[in-house]
Design a protein around this nucleic acid. Structure first.
Length: 141
RNA sequence: CGGACAGCAACGAUUGUCGCGUCGUUCUUUAUUGAACGCCGAGGAAAGUCGGGACAGCACAGAGCGCCAUACUUCCUAACGGGAAGGUGCUGUUUUGGAAACGAAACAGCAACAGAGAGUGCCACAGAAAACUACCGUCCGAUCGAGGUCUGACCUUGAAAGGGUAAGGGUGAAAACGUGAGGUAAGAGCUCACGACGCAUUUAGGCGACUAAGUGUGUGGGUAAACCUUAUGGGCUGCAAGGCCAAAUAUGCCGGCGAAAACCGCCUUGUGCGGAAAAGAGGGCUGCAUCGUCCGAUGUCGGUGGGUAGGCUGCUUGAGCUUUUCGGUGACGAAAAGCCUAGAUAAAUGACAGUCUAAUACAGAAUCCUGCUUAUGAUGCUGUUCAAACA
RNA sequence: GGGCAUUUAACUCAGUUGGUUUAGAGUGUCACCUUGACAGGGUGGAAGUCACUGGUUCGAGUCCAGUAAUGCCCA
């Protein structure tokens, strides 16, 4: 319940909720599980150690598919915006289950997509993550 | 008025909702934790990383060789392979001189534009020959024949050692100064006129590259983005440079681990009592053994060193920007006044919905500055050119 | 961010420095021969914008400059 008081309006995205650091990223990619949801490859893991924030996330876009830095910046901003506006239900689920989750989104499409499409795709990713965690908890407990 | 090309200018404004980063103020937190408010928040190329610097570390007696880069002149600049002004050459167009060769003027564009008369190398195929050249041709021709005239010579003609000659020879990217005339056995700058180019030198102009006029002398191509020569410059590495702090784990070094001493605590100030981690293989001191004593692997406790993750710094006030005046043909310089204008760190400057508008293209800072190159849309201005119409 | 290298046939490489002649080799591919048929073997052929653009030169895969793509190193 302390986390809820820390984040009064659910649509913020401060640095605390972003995944960074060489150690954390390499740990996620070596031990996490992954699945595809076009146009993203999603890598997740739920570390057992207690973290300050229930949900951390990062975006990655390969330089091979997008040569120009402006294109990569634009996609990152689109994805961050979609994540920022739609992540709140997932956080509530995680707080209820008292779990932590780290998510990496890897953009695998070759073209820039419109923002509305990215919004709907992110929505689908978040609902899938929510379902996974609810099912997990009911079977285990 | 329209199209194309080149250059210059500025590259949105505003309303609502949500959101990001640095900094400042206030409150808050164990904490540079969190909250509220405010200010500011990508470019002309931020790109390519191609030149040149600043800055930093390392190296370094002096000189030479080697290697690399640059290359008309003068200036600008912190410096440059950059820029400005000028010179020369080439190309194109127009006009024009001349019999020709070959020039002259104007405009536009281009030039890695030192040296080929210092040396070495190379120039396929074709062609006689690609650089001290003689294959054909042409001319002279000792000598040897044949024929004729006719008494020892002449004429005609054939072969020919040797020699002269660059006029001609379908080649080639390039052919041995060019055109015309004289000259000659035939030829040849051999000579002459005109023209082209080079070297030396004189005078005049210019800071200079060079220009103009004259004198002498000469005419053996191209290639230096082949080696090279001359002149000038260059130590190497790059902010992931460099400096500081420093978890966890491993390890190096120092000290302790029987008592005593040392360390910490206490008060009764005493060879006092208590505390902290705990076991010690093995070896030396003597021929052997015990006691004693010394060293001590491993382990353990404490300290310390470099140093990883991570963090801080370097980091943005600078060859700075704007305006005005002055100097200069110009690049640019000087003075005065005013201004502070991104500093992120898996990396901020955004998303959605409207309105105005030409508002779209190329495109995102990563130590900084200065140039070059490349990519670019519509608008405005300037210049060039094309088309059409009119005069 | 900084520092470097490479690009030649469908694939892997020579040739480049030292310039001019038809750009070669192996694998693959195609046709024919060999076999009853296949494999293997033999003979022959096709396949190249020498990454792209410009320059130097009489002449560029090679020399010079720019552009693009690919790859490597530095914590």
């Amino acid at each position: 319940m302390e986390t809820n008081t820390k984040i009064p309006s659910g649509n913020t995205l401060p640095k605390l909720q972003r995944l960074y650091g060489k150690k954390a990223v390499s740990l996620l990619f070596s031990s996490g599980t992954s699945f595809f949801q076009y146009p993203f490859k999603i890598v997740t893991s739920s570390p057992s150690e207690q973290a300050k924030v229930p949900l951390r996330f990062m975006v990655s876009i390969s330089k091979r598919n997008f040569k120009n830095a402006t294109d990569r910046n634009r996609i990152k901003r689109q994805v961050r915006e979609a994540w920022r506006t739609q992540k709140q239900p997932l956080i509530e689920v995680l707080v209820q289950q008292q779990k932590n989750l780290e998510v990496a989104l890897i953009f695998t499409a070759k073209n820039i997509l419109p923002s509305s499409e990215i919004n709907s795709k992110i929505k689908r990713v978040i609902t899938r993550l929510m379902q996974d965690h609810e099912v997990h908890n009911t079977t285990s407990g």
